[in-house]
């Protein structure tokens, strides 16, 4: 299974195996990663699953989609070039090993 690592602002890390096809918001919730909420269940309505993709992985993760881009305009934490909504990142071979930084709450 693809591996995903979340890093908290404190430096605390969680690494988990995520079933291919699952989105990385639901993976974060399933693995009890603080700071990734996912109120809307992953339907691009709430922006509570905002993460910063690690610079090493940013190109592979790609840019946000059109609607995601709009939702990212007003996340709780500041938007950066590597900002994504993690419900739109899908676990799979292409992102095996991806590192995500959870924004400061």
């Amino acid at each position: 299974m693809p591996k995903v690592t979340w890093i908290q602002p404190s430096g605390e890390k969680v690494t988990a195996d995520v079933p291919a096809g699952h989105n990385l918001m639901e993976a974060a919730v399933a693995n009890n990663v603080p700071g990734v909420i996912g109120e809307c269940g992953g339907c691009l309505s709430c922006a509570t699953c905002h993460v910063y993709v690690d610079a090493e992985w940013s190109d592979r993760a790609g840019p946000p989609g059109e609607m995601e881009n709009d939702m990212l305009e007003v996340t709780a934490a500041e938007r950066r070039g590597t900002s994504r909504l993690s419900c739109q990142l899908i676990a799979g071979d292409a992102l095996d090993g991806i590192v995500l930084h959870v924004p400061q709450a």
Partner: peptide
């Protein structure tokens, strides 16, 4: 279908 307006209004 207007997430930007929604986001601004909510904030």
């Amino acid at each position: 279908n207007d997430a930007l307006t929604y986001s601004i209004a909510k904030k």
